[in-house]
Simulated assay, not measured.
Amino acid sequence: MDVLRLDNRLTDEERMIRDTVRAVVAEKVLPHVADWFEAGTFPARELAPELGKLGLLGMHLKGYGCAGMSAVAYGVACRELEAGDSGLRSFVSVQGSLAMAAIHKYGSQEQKQQWLPKMAAGEAIGCFGLTEPDRGSDPGDMRTHARRDGADWVLNGTKMWITNGSVADVAVVWARTDEGIRGFLVPAGTPGFTARDIHRKLSLRASVTSELVLEDVRLPADAVLPGVTGLKGPLSCLSEARYGIVWGAVGAGRACYEAAVAYAKTREQFGRPIGAFQLTQEKLAWMEIALGQAGLTALHLGRLKDEGSLTPQQVSFGKMANVRAALDVARQARTILGANGITLEYPVIRHMNNLESVLTYEGTQEVHTLVLGQAITGISAYRG
């Protein structure tokens, strides 16, 4: 159903990664993910070693047990993971592009040696604490703070909507200091540090989402990431994760599209398959076009990233365009499936609900609009 035959533009290695990840998702995830979604659970501890064996955790990073694959290879993996579920891709993305990437880019050699090999193998799980209850799109105004006390640091604050929070062995927590915003490695079990799961979600249910609470958390001097001060640190990691979303959204949309095509060929009304009616074919045609355009965007940005020329504005373009396209595809697919589209017997409503979160996490559509607006006009519209 890929009219543009975009995967023909992939290398043999990239197609091998596609096939490998797609097979693992089909075997390990698709038979169970509807039950995980319904129950609001995600078997992070069970899946992490499996993903580690495949080299999917921090796969775009080099050294320390990481696979060192290309940006396009990582994107293809994200696409196939999110075709399974956005929660699965989120787990891999937070582990590799946020927690591991922060340590890889800005950590000391000791921090890298301590954490990255275990995280790459899935033996240790990480999370990334940036968002706060009242400070989502404006992280520069964060309230979490760290102060020096002798040779130690003492952290206080709250982080919200943190993927992997309660299952993480280490949290990368960003806090305001007298020197500027700094990143800290907070191991699970540190006194004063707690992670509480957020329940009653109707989106990303097959994902662990937590609140992190830090109450006089005392850390040694070597807990701080030495390589960066300021918002550059967390924002550069977010750009890595957003790149994965550019590809992942295509996978979620594709899963909905494939379900709609299969259903349209077999569901009969008025004595013929609904796929034989012009209105249904028009929906499918526009879905194919939307996914083709999104796939072209992802592939182009991936090649730019491998060349070392990808900009944050281009990532915003891709994240904004592709998530919106995938969400539109999911909604159209739901109409083709009719009442069956709202059940977990089919993947459509699960992906559609998940994409509502993907639309606003790691940069809302509004924020990415302003990023592009500033790129177009040269004028920042963030503050009045």
Rank of each mutant, 00 (worst) to 15 (best):
T311E: 09
S309N: 12
A333F: 02
V358F: 03
G302R: 11
G308N: 08
K319M: 05
Y346W: 08
A325H: 12
I349H: 01
V348S: 06
Q365G: 14
G338L: 08
N340Q: 13
L359F: 02
R350F: 00
R303F: 03
D306M: 07
E356W: 03
L304Q: 15
A330E: 09
M320A: 10
A326Q: 05
A330R: 09
V315K: 02
H351C: 12
R331P: 02
A321F: 00
A339E: 10
P347A: 08
G308L: 06
V323W: 01
I342Y: 08
S357W: 04
Q313M: 11
V315L: 10
L337G: 07
L310H: 01
Y361I: 14
A321Y: 00
Q313G: 12
A330C: 14
Q365N: 14
N340Y: 03
L359M: 10
L344W: 03
T311V: 04
I349C: 07
N340T: 06
D328E: 11
E356M: 14
A325S: 15
N353G: 00
H351S: 12
R303Y: 01
Q332Y: 01
Q332I: 01
T364D: 08
R324E: 10
E345C: 05
T335G: 04
A330Y: 05
R303C: 03
S309F: 02
A330P: 13
L359P: 01
T364P: 07
I349F: 00
T335R: 13
E307M: 11
A321C: 04
G302K: 11
Q365K: 13
